[in-house]
Amino acid sequence: MTAETRKPILEAKGLVKTFGRVVGLDVSDLALYPGEVLAVVGDNGAGKSTLIKCLSGAEVADEGEIELDGEIVSFKRPQDSRAVGIETVYQTLAVAPALDIASNLYLGRELRRSGLLGSVFRMLDNKTMKQHAKEQIAALGIGTIQNIGQAVETLSGGQRQAVAVARAAAFGSKVMILDEPTAALGVRESNQVLKLIVKLRERGMPVILISHNMPQVFEVADRIHIQRLGKRAAVVTPLTHTMVEVVGIMTGALKIDESGQTLHSVR
């Protein structure tokens, strides 16, 4: 693994989460380093979505702790994790369809006008919001979006997901979690989103990418966190391991030993 001198920006230690008798997370760890794209892969039921939900505040872990920038944080609701700078983008294209792009970017944190118009009449500062939205979209290189006043439902799936990513990136967030952002998208639209992820890394934004799609994971990830049976089975890189090996670890056909690199067949 990477040098110990680097400190993770986001670290989860010994997370345990049970749902009745079902064990979702069985003392699981995760570490995300600054400026990297960490892919999280795992079979169904391996606990990857539970892990991510604990990080984004959608679930509360029974045990274990989460550190952001070296400080222990605890989340009870999604708003809590957002408040400290962890933004999550969901696969379901979570945007408000009838509202325009600028309104979507600022949904839930609208800016009000200054003075009486804002404080008494609660009027929104549409001009500033539009201006910022435009800059944000341009900065992420989402060139296919022409008109910031366009209703989001007139956009393609990839563009909508780009709006969701732009929203997550717009508010000085420290960490971005993308939960299967391409699951609902076609090939070309997925590529748009992957480009966006690369762009985010170029801007120094650490990204956790949850995905089922191995080629996509190998295309953009710096490191791959493999979740299996509620635990972190291994962390590998696309340079040192092949897709077949990663799938092997994921399914339990291959095991990685404590020191790291050597792989040996089970049975």
Partner: peptide
């Protein structure tokens, strides 16, 4: 936003 997609609105905070 709530009327358009209640789940998306919830996720937006």
């Amino acid at each position: 936003a709530t009327g358009g997609d209640i789940e998306a609105a919830r996720l937006a905070g």
